[in-house]
């Protein structure tokens, strides 16, 4: 690792977060200057997946837990919003009990709650194991969620679920392209700040320590399980928020968003951006998604290049883009 953790300065991280959010906030301005509204659409996607990747990195980068079920949790969030809208649309009731709603001030927190609860329940089983077991179990749980939604015929099954009615936030239309983008950006900013505080709090110290030396942690009197579980549930809730935003933004959610390959993609975003910082995965998500668009425009066989790129990152860019930035910064400074 090029950056030693003792030089960890929370203030410089807050600075980085500010810069990132500012740059993202400028995207719509640039888009209107160059007259390409497609840019805002891409940026929305980047912001949404950045939220999911930051969520994953809380447990992956700081807790050392290689979870391959985050696409599943992400999808749960999306389905909560979509199913609520579905019931609002035909005035039916969910479980014959609850009315639906198109109001995001209810839908988003509920999406977080359900995804967080699912993460907690599945975490309870998977966190009792470690290493390869943990990875394989989370992968299996991801598939379980995937097949569950594939089998839910009343909500579209494999074809996915369209959101027919207009979603609102506190009664105002929420899905205008600009306002929705800035809404997502605010969510990302909040998530970044919260996770940044979290990993430097007492809780965060325990989480980080648990990934470095579990035996030592136990020997000083802290059993890591409940801290890991809490982190996992929080991470799941935030991933659920991201999924809910995706569903709201594209007015659609399908099991395809929860495939295990998506879970792998999220891990790649974290590693590509750099897991040592809270904001690293934002860079990873941006580069990943932009690259996906660029490469797929180039060739139908873009996945080949993509796969090779992933291997290259694992082999040679261990600290992710953050390390590259450091390297460039240092070279610039020494000039």
């Amino acid at each position: 690792m090029a950056s030693s953790p003792a030089s960890y300065r929370p203030s410089s991280d807050m600075m980085a977060i500010t810069v990132i959010v500012a740059v993202l906030a400028a995207v719509p301005v640039v888009a209107s200057l160059v007259g390409d509204p497609f840019l805002v659409k891409i940026a929305t996607r980047v912001v949404v997946f950045a939220i999911a990747a930051v969520a994953l990195n809380l447990v992956l980068g700081f807790g050392g837990l290689v979870s391959l079920m985050h696409a599943g949790l992400f999808g749960i969030g999306g389905y909560v919003v979509a199913i609520l809208a579905f019931h609002a649309d035909d005035s039916s009731r969910l479980f014959d009990l609850f009315p639906g709603t198109t109001e995001l001030s209810i839908g988003l927190p509920l999406a977080m709650l359900v995804a967080g609860a699912a993460a907690a329940v599945m975490g309870l089983v998977s966190l009792r194991t470690s290493g390869v077991y943990f990875i394989m179990i989370t992968l299996a749980f991801n598939q379980m969620l995937y097949y569950f939604f594939v089998a839910l015929q009343q909500y579209g099954g494999e074809d996915g679920l369209q959101i027919m009615s207009d979603l609102t936030l506190f009664g105002h239309a929420a899905i205008g392209r600009m306002s929705f983008y800035y809404g997502c950006l605010v969510a990302l900013a909040l998530v970044l700040v919260v996770v940044q505080r979290l990993i430097n709090s007492r809780f965060g110290m325990v989480l980080r320590a648990s990934s470095q030396n579990e035996r030592r942690l136990t020997a000083i009197g802290i059993a890591p399980l409940r801290y890991r579980l809490t982190a996992f549930a929080l991470s799941g809730a935030i991933a659920g928020l991201a999924g809910a935003l995706l569903a709201a933004g594209q007015q659609f959610i399908s099991p395809a968003e929860m495939s295990w390959v998506r879970s792998g993609d999220l891990v790649v975003m974290c590693v590509l951006g750099g897991m040592a910082r809270v904001w690293g995965p934002v860079l990873g998500a941006a580069v990943f998604l932009v690259l996906e668009i660029v490469l797929s425009g180039w060739s139908t066989h873009w996945q080949l290049a993509f796969g090779l790129l992933i291997i290259l990152v694992v082999v040679s860019l261990r600290g992710g883009l953050i390390d590259l930035l450091h390297l460039v910064g240092r070279r610039g400074a020494s000039r």
């Binding site: 992956l60 290689v66 391959l68 290493g131 390869v132 990875i135 792998g264 891990v267 790649v268 590693v271 066989h301 996945q303 080949l304 993509f306 796969g307 090779l308 790129l309 992933i310 291997i311 990152v313 694992v314 082999v315």
Partner: peptide, 18 residues
Amino acid sequence: HLDQVLVTFGLILVLNEI
């Protein structure tokens, strides 16, 4: 294990495409 997951994940994409 993380590196192993990633590298074999990348290989899946490559092999599928080939």
